[in-house]
Amino acid sequence: MADSLSELSQLTPGAHPLRREVVVRHQLERILTAVVELVAARGYRNVSVAAIVKQAGTSRLKFYENFSSKEDCFLAAFDAGIEAASGRVAQACEAAGSELPARVGAGIDALLGFLAERPALARACALQAPSLGAAMGDRRARAIASFAPLLDGARESATVSELPAGVEESVLDGLYWLLYDALLSGSPEPVAELRGALVEFALLPFLGPASARQAGAL
């Protein structure tokens, strides 16, 4: 999104025969970027449609062509952000192969890398989105569940026997707790320390404390 924005800003209006759908897509992306930046900086409750429109350099008309409300707009940005983050994690896990510590390490690295690149998105989605209350529906739970590929195959690779059913979901909940806490404290810094904690916690139920600790220290 950031890339396409900088690309767009280099265009001189009128100098390029942009096709209509390209313009529309850029407008949409500008609005989504604007809502995320504003919500991260000011808090969800303190952001208005007027401010989003101004920051995005678009018009109210264009805003309402795409979204019915501030809430609708923010939820679209939230969904897009979670999809991008979980996609990045799944891809990194796949690329790392089937060995569990390597897979989990790659997935956590990808997640922390994504959050470091997009700090406003991280703050908006983790810290501000819950302010919407009931309007969030089950998005928080679905968002956490979308990172399930991180633990694909973990049960099969486990050295701990008789794992409880649903341990994967419980582990994702715990990972989110640790990550959320780091975001509350400012940013996911220091990343190295957080990385170790997340890798260790993800592996602990499957490999036991000693192996988990060893993998986290790598």
Binding site: S170, D173, G174, L175, Y176, F201, L204, G208
Partner: peptide
């Protein structure tokens, strides 16, 4: 209680407790 007492990751309990709180919260949300 564990044979690996000294090798537990430092954040083990924070993650476990946090996960438990989240699971309870999800049930309440529902």
């Amino acid at each position: 209680r564990s044979a690996d007492a000294d090798s537990f990751p430092p954040t083990t309990e924070r993650g476990l407790i946090g996960s438990i709180a989240s699971q309870i919260g999800r049930k309440v949300s529902a």
